[in-house]
Design a protein around this nucleic acid. Sequence first.
DNA 1: ATCCTCAAGGATATTTAATATCCTTATTTA
DNA 2: TAAATAAGGATATTAAATATCCTTGAGGAT
Lengths: 161, 161
Amino acid sequence: MRLKSQVEWALHCCILLAGLPAGRYLATKTLAEFHGVPKEYLSKALQAVSQAGLVESTLGPSGGYRLARAPEAITFLDVVEAVEGKGPSFLCTEIRKNNPCRPAGYCDDKPCGIARVMWEADRAWRETLAGVRLSDLLGTLESSLPAQQRADTAAWIAARS
Amino acid sequence: MRLKSQVEWALHCCILLAGLPAGRYLATKTLAEFHGVPKEYLSKALQAVSQAGLVESTLGPSGGYRLARAPEAITFLDVVEAVEGKGPSFLCTEIRKNNPCRPAGYCDDKPCGIARVMWEADRAWRETLAGVRLSDLLGTLESSLPAQQRADTAAWIAARS
DNA sequence: ATCCTCAAGGATATTTAATATCCTTATTTA
DNA sequence: TAAATAAGGATATTAAATATCCTTGAGGAT
């Protein structure tokens, strides 16, 4: 069970967009180059994030993506679910119903106990992700870099937004 | 991101084994028939659970599997990790290092902030699973069945253990 | 002893999902 | 009008999940 690499890419892109001056766009090409990932495939991730309403895009030269809401109003869960989907990580196929002593048409009232535990863990996972906003990460990505490179990075992005 | 179906199978099998009288074995064939899953493939899941030390097996006629510890001493996390592995669901590929403004050999002190959040969510997921023991589920699986079928099921299993 | 049953595990399909690329279309800016 | 861009369809490639088959060696039953 592993999340798609697109989840990582989408999160990094959203954080980067969160650091832009209001209204500025960054093109897929720029985001791909900055993160060293294939442009065409990153585009699919950005489309998913766009369809979830987290970012908005504009066409033509100087086009690209920007956040559709304030960084305080977008959580990690929003981004993760945009790319990975909202479906639970545990799929209950109700194998308890294959019990040979069970009549065929018998209808259960309660969900499977095992599934309930797995879904509770899933809920805890999502709750943690929902508790972190893009704004919480602002600046922490470059914080490990020396001041000079942080400035270089800011200039590099500014020149392309 | 979805867990393998073998996780579901392994959990159901372990709960079933947890309900056996001490020392009794259940064969793969029986476990497969009871849950309506392919015997050969279920065998792979049981092997994984066995290698994790959660169950132990014996060969020959009347052979099969039984729990290696008391149901109170085995958690959902034990079973899930036995089948799914202990690796985190989020793989950080350090794409921040592809920042074109960053010197090639620069060595980071801190882990990526995004990865830390994702790993924290992973930890919350595992913590929930670690908080549930096999003994907590004992009986709840059949509890949705009428008394007659519960007795039939118990007899069906007893006849094969 | 001999035979049958069983778990372990290697080998090998088959199917599905993730990863990746290419191309067309419509839109916007210069 | 021309260039750049996002959107999205089509398709190829790779990896993982799912599944089956077969051999080996251990354990009971006869």
